[in-house]
């Protein structure tokens, strides 16, 4: 459905944010994972017609996004990573305003759209308050609501769960899952769980390149019986990093859990673990770092 072909983008200061990205994104939820500064937002903005790539082509169905951004915008829902609001405008008025801009002309359609969305993102009670006074989470929910106006065919949400409390996050993910069955939804995040919970397909972006692409289940399958774990003291960590291919570390009751990647049993007290998507992600990042 959405085809990116050899897309690169170089910023004016010389940063190569996207480096020959080729992706094919089908209907349904698509997760884009990557660390900070991986180029996720650049990719999202490029697809959302807000930025022209230095080279490459992007097509959505029969629309050439670079040549005809206007056509894509008619069926696009976009939630940027960071956004602000106008002063002195309430949530209801702003959603209504956005509905007109998205092409919902009739008053009854707009009323239905705005009221439905306000309830779905749980902003009904504060609909008449000025957006400028919203907390970060409330503002994020407003952003989600506006991205869903007009039943878009392509929904791009850049780090949508940032700043949401767990309850709101669940509510939002449910909403997305419901919508995401028939349309293309691209969800960028650095939270692995968002992707593993929702997305039948995903890609890992780091250093401007696609490091990995596939279905989370298959990817997890591929790391099966290659991830080993051990509980060690913090002071030992450096020596372990030298000896093994450490893909992630985390703390657990004051000690450090290391995960290493190895095709065979590394011995030394390591035990095999059932790898999750997180391990896939971290091992990919570890590989890309090594390659760099």
């Amino acid at each position: 459905m959405l085809e990116l072909n050899d897309v690169s983008h170089v910023y004016a200061n010389g940063t190569r944010a996207l480096d020959h990205v080729t992706l094919s994104i089908p209907r349904g939820m698509y997760g884009l994972l990557g660390p900070n500064g991986a180029g996720k937002s650049t990719l999202m903005r490029t697809v959302a017609t807000l930025q022209t790539p230095t080279e490459g082509s992007i097509r959505f169905g029969d629309i050439d996004i670079i040549a005809e951004p206007e056509r894509l915008r008619r069926t696009l829902g976009y939630l940027p990573q960071d956004f602000g609001v106008y002063p002195r405008v309430s949530a209801y008025d702003m959603l209504d305003h956005m509905a007109v801009l998205k092409g919902i002309a009739s008053a009854s359609d707009r009323k239905q759209t705005v009221e439905t969305l306000l309830q779905q993102v749980n902003l009904w009670n504060v609909r008449k308050k000025a957006l400028a006074g919203f907390s970060g989470g409330m503002r994020q929910r407003f952003g989600i609501a506006q991205a869903l106006i007009g039943n878009p065919e392509l929904i791009i949400v850049d780090e949508p769960t940032a700043g949401l409390d767990p309850e709101e996050r669940n509510r939002f993910l449910n909403l997305l899952a419901e919508i995401g069955e028939n349309v293309v939804v691209i969800l960028s995040t650095h939270i692995v769980e968002d992707v593993s919970d929702l997305c039948p397909r995903m890609a890992v972006l780091a250093g401007g390149r696609i490091q990995l692409e596939g279905a989370p289940l298959e990817l997890i399958q591929s790391t099966r019986s290659r991830i080993w774990m051990k509980l060690i003291e913090r002071a030992e960590l450096d020596s372990y990093r030298e000896r093994y291919e450490v893909i992630s570390t985390r703390l657990f009751s004051g000690r450090t859990v290391v995960h290493v990647l190895s095709d065979s049993d590394p011995g030394n007290g390591f035990t095999l673990v059932e790898g999750g998507l997180e391990d896939v992600y971290f091992s990919t990042l570890a590989q890309s770092r090594r390659a760099a």
Partner: peptide
């Protein structure tokens, strides 16, 4: 205005 308020990405992505 849109840029100063940082709402330009949202408005600019509409078909207006």
């Amino acid at each position: 205005r849109e840029r100063d308020r940082k709402i330009h990405e949202i408005i600019d992505a509409t078909p207006m």
